[in-house]
Structure formats: C-alpha cells, structure tokens
C-alpha cells in the first residue's frame, strides 16, 4: 500500500513539466526515504535525478519499496487536471498495475481522482558517487534560463568557463559569436538574486545547448540554480525543491575529437 499526500501539489506539477520532454518513460521509486526518480534521456547524454523526501509529505505511507513505471507525458496530462492550489495524493495498492492521483481543492469542495495505467519500464540505474567539483556557480534560475535561451539563438553548443573573474558562457554559430560573463555579485537586496562563484580550479567545458534549454524547464521550482563543474565529470544543474529535495540534471560534455 502506497499513499503520499502532498499539500503543495503544484510542486509535482512543476516537476513533471520540467522532465517530461527529456524523458519519455521512467520508474518512480518509493521507499522510506522518499519518492524518487532516476532516468536518462533516449540518447543517454543527460540524466535526471529527482528526490522528494518523505518528510516533505503531509502523509507518507510506503509499506514496502515499490517501483512504478509511468509514461511521463501521460502523468503530466493527469497532473495538469489538478489546480495549482490543490492537494495531490498518490495511491497504489500492492501488486496493482495502476496508480491513482487524487486532487483536493484547498476548500475541500472539489475532489477528483484520476487512475493511470502503470507500465514496465526497462531502465538502467546508475550509481553517482559524491564528487568534489572544480567550480560551483549559484545564480538566479531565471538569469540562467535567459542566458541559455539567448545563446541558443546564436549557436548549438556552449562553452562554460569558470575563472576567478566569474563564469563565462560562450557560443558561436553561422551568424557570429556571443559571450556572457556573470561576475560574483553578493551585494543584492535579496539573497536569491546573488551570483556566487566558488572556484577551486579554473574549468572550461563544452555542452550541447539544447539540453540546457530543456533543463531550464525546472526554473519554476526554484529561484536559484546551482551549476557544478569538473573537468572529468558531467555538469550538474540543480534546482532545489524547498523543504523537500531536489531536481538534478546531469549532462555529459562534448570533447574535441
């Protein structure tokens, strides 16, 4: 028996909107720790990792570890039927091949349930060890989204370089080149508007911009985004989910042949 009641149901709606274009089918894993997902895109270039900790749910019952295969587009369709202020409850019986999403309006005057068929999803789970990163950049998530969108109108790849000067995003294409430099800036009114560059070593890596643009669909989840870079590792783009966990995107770099 599984029963997860999420008062801030909009979080789950936002999570699905953020990942449904990158990943088609995925297994949601439910354990005492929380509700999680790990999935790669079809080309195995990017990986999504979601964690919603059990403590973040108003009610969390998970009698045994369970993995539920879902088509994310279909799940998003169902969650779109929930209001932004609705409480969302996920329910599944042991051995059932369906999951039920129950939506309650804040005033309890409208209660809906949507039952979705589960599916077998063949997925490879990767072990991601803790790593020391050469550089970690924290910046407003809207600013990062803006940069990715702007650069993708010029080129297909972005070079992200972190030096003591700050972080530089560069691209080039048929029509020309573009460079955006963000310097550390902590003298802001609100902490979420700050740009913080922590650098242990300078690092410069090249990535496909279209993946970054897909990751920025996580922007509504958090005011800030954290970008962790190391020369021998995929970049990690992380959106914290307040009080509950995180949505992380990992992207393998491009290298010169």
């Amino acid at each position: 028996m599984l029963e997860l009641r999420l008062v801030q149901g909009s979080l789950l709606k936002k999570v699905l909107e953020a990942i449904k274009d990158l990943v088609t089918d995925a297994n949601f894993d439910c354990s005492a720790t929380g509700f999680s997902l790990q999935a790669m895109d079809s080309s195995h270039v990017a990986l999504v990792s979601l964690l919603l900790r059990s403590e973040g749910f108003e009610h969390y019952r998970c009698d045994r570890n369970i993995s539920m295969g879902m088509n994310l587009n279909n799940m998003a369709k169902m969650l779109k039927c929930a209001g932004n202020d609705d409480i969302i409850t996920l329910k599944a019986d042991d051995g059932s091949d369906t999951v039920t999403f129950m939506f309650e309006s804040p005033t309890q005057d409208k209660i809906s349930d949507f039952e979705m068929k589960l599916m077998d999803v063949d997925s490879e789970h990767l072990g991601i060890p803790e790593a020391e990163y050469h550089a970690i950049v924290r910046m407003p998530s809207t600013e990062f989204a803006r940069i990715c969108k702007d650069l993708s109108s010029i080129g297909d790849t972005v070079v992200i370089s972190v030096t003591k000067e700050g972080v530089k995003f560069s691209t080039s294409g048929d029509i020309g080149t573009a460079n955006v430099v963000c310097r550390q800036n902590t003298t802001v009114d609100k902490p979420e508007d700050a740009t913080i560059v922590e650098m242990n070593e300078p690092v410069s890596l090249t990535f496909a911009l279209r993946y970054f643009n897909s990751f920025t669909k996580g922007t509504p989840l958090s005011n800030t985004v954290t970008i962790s870079l190391s020369s021998e590792l995929p970049v990690v783009v992380e959106y914290k989910i307040a009080e509950m966990g995180h949505l992380r995107f990992y992207l393998a770099p491009k290298i010169e042949e």
């Binding site: 195995h44 490879e124 789970h125 072990g127 995929p234 992207l251 393998a252 491009k254 010169e256």
Partner: peptide, 14 residues
C-alpha cells in the same frame, strides 16, 4: 568536430 560523450561513460550501473 566535437564528440558528444555519453553519461554512462562516467557513471556505472548500480
């Protein structure tokens, strides 16, 4: 010409 690496080249199946 640049080569796109795969995520599975970095992380192993668990």
């Amino acid at each position: 010409q640049s080569l796109q690496l795969s995520i599975t080249e970095f992380y192993r199946s668990s």
